[in-house]
Simulated scan of single mutants.
Amino acid sequence: MTPSTALAVRDPWSLVPSLGNLDAYIAAVNRLPILTQEEETRYARQYREQNDLEAARKLVMSHLRLVVSVSRQYLGYGLPHGDLIQEGNIGLMKAVKRFDPAQGVRLVSYALHWIKAEIHEYILKNWRMVKVATTKAQRKLFFNLRSMKQHLKDDAADADTHRSTLTDREIDTVARELNVKREEVIEMETRLAGGDVALEPTVEDGEESYAPIAYLADESQEPTRLLEAQRRDELATDGVARALEVLDPRSRRIVEERWLKVNDDGSGGKTLHELAADYGVSAERIRQIEAAAMKKMRKALAEYA
């Protein structure tokens, strides 16, 4: 017997390899000893009363095979088995942290809830990029609907066995057994049936592709557009005010009366002929004054910008 083999015999808790494939891990955890009720109670008390981390480690290690067993029930979601086991192990550690042996319940029964809860959370976050279930009721419906659909397919004897959607009778059956509204079953069935859509086109799609990224982006919040809008606002307020300051009083009044004032009825400013009557000159003269004023203002705005 080699020294390493002898060590493994003396310390059965060292059987789980630190590295290796998933099959090696599963084989190792299945060789770990199962605690008796007396041992489980003793270790749980040591951890709760003395914060004995070694006792907590033994409680976790002895139930790793439980996580492997539970995780196999969720392989149908297409997620890596190793990731499911990892998330389940997190739930197991949470259960050990909260376990109270004085309640008279075995850890295996108490830990099931925490293991499944962590695996459920992982599936809901990673099964689809967009969440299909956000509330507690939707989560319950999500997991139960998948399993019930499979049972309904297995029980179907007609030639339409390979259909993916539920019939009206099956929807009523699911709603009745799960005690939910018929509309909720239809909505969840639609979410499950919908596939993921790539936001950006793939290379094979060609130049004519029109992926969602082309119309989902909010251009109004794009940084360069925001800066441009901010700059336009500054030019429309401070810039125009400074440009008006370079004009003589008559030119400034003509520009303001023509372009910056609004009548009570919502119409624009005065016409060339109206201003010509006010100043006792021709409309052509008002146009010349206006043109010269605009030239000065454009120069002032360019310097301000």
Rank of each mutant, 00 (worst) to 15 (best):
A55P: 08
V174R: 00
P212W: 10
A95M: 05
D154H: 14
Q50F: 09
L260P: 05
A159M: 00
Y110S: 04
P17Y: 13
A302H: 02
P201Q: 14
W13K: 13
Y304V: 12
D233F: 08
L145T: 02
E284C: 05
L79D: 05
E257Y: 03
L244G: 00
Q103Y: 08
E54A: 08
L275R: 13
L199F: 10
Q150L: 14
E274C: 11
I254M: 08
S267N: 14
A117G: 05
R298P: 00
R287H: 11
A102R: 03
L15Y: 10
A28H: 07
W13D: 15
L227H: 14
E256I: 08
E170R: 02
E207M: 08
K116T: 14
N89R: 03
L226A: 11
R10Y: 12
I85M: 03
Q37R: 13
H113S: 10
T167K: 06
I254A: 12
A6P: 02
F143A: 06
L226G: 04
A6C: 08
I254F: 09
A157N: 04
L92G: 02
E274M: 15
M1S: 15
L84H: 07
K261W: 11
A24M: 07
K270G: 07
G206P: 01
P212Q: 10
S71L: 01
K149G: 01
D172S: 14
K149D: 00
A229M: 11
R232G: 07
A302G: 01
D154Y: 07
Q288A: 13
M148F: 03
G20L: 07
T237Y: 01
H81F: 06
D233T: 13
I119D: 01
Y215G: 06
A28S: 10
Q50S: 10
G78F: 11
P17S: 05
S71R: 03
Y25H: 15
L107S: 00
E257L: 10
E121Q: 12
V197H: 09
V105S: 12
D160Q: 08
V255W: 04
A293N: 10
R250I: 07
E118A: 13
Y110D: 13
A277T: 10
L75E: 05
A211G: 09
N89M: 04
N89I: 06
L199Q: 15
P17Q: 13
E256W: 01
Q230P: 02
A117P: 00
R176A: 11
D205W: 13
G20W: 11
F143D: 00
P12G: 10
K299Y: 02
Y47F: 07
D205E: 13
P212V: 09
I213P: 05
F143S: 03
A175Y: 05
F142K: 04
D160L: 07
L272P: 02
D172Y: 03
E87K: 07
E274R: 12
E177D: 04
L7V: 08
V255G: 08
K181G: 14
V67I: 04
E228M: 07
V60W: 03
A277H: 05
T161I: 03
A293W: 02
K153T: 15
K136Q: 09
R163T: 15
P201S: 11
K261M: 06
S62P: 01
A24T: 09
L64F: 06
V203T: 10
R176F: 08
N179W: 04
N30P: 06
N179C: 02
L22N: 07
G78Q: 07
R45H: 12
R48M: 01
S14C: 12
H162N: 15
R128T: 05
S14Y: 15
K140P: 00
F143H: 02
R146E: 00
